[in-house]
């Protein structure tokens, strides 16, 4: 399992790609399963995940959240991150899908 790359690519429905740390992306159990080589998905071999139901703007916020979550993993009294209210519902759908 040593050949796991440090970074993985997440691609939105409108073809924006985000290169993020594998550890942060794997905060989402869904992405973790997709990228786990033992499950044998195509995502695992290409280290790339396509999201057909998440657009670029939302995926960007999701990636920001991944890093925020990683950063505050062991912290307490964490200040809530800010995101535009108008994205709220789409972000909620995406978050629910990604289970984060």
């Amino acid at each position: 399992m040593n050949d796991l790359t440090e970074y993985v690519t997440l691609i939105s429905s409108d073809d924006f790609s985000y290169v993020v740390l594998r550890s942060t992306a794997c905060i989402s159990p869904i992405i973790r399963r997709m990228l786990d080589p033992s499950n044998g998905f195509m995502e695992a071999s290409t280290n790339t995940v396509h999201f057909d139901n998440i657009n670029g703007i939302v995926l960007e916020k999701v990636c920001e959240y991944f890093y925020y979550n990683e950063k505050n993993k062991d912290a307490k009294d964490v200040a809530d991150p800010d995101f535009p209210t108008e994205l709220c519902l789409e972000l909620l759908m995406a978050a629910d899908y990604l289970d984060v």
Binding site: Y65, N72, P81, L91
Partner: peptide
Amino acid sequence: GAKSLVQLCINR
């Protein structure tokens, strides 16, 4: 740690 994103959105 951080709150879940779902929770944050719901609160918002």
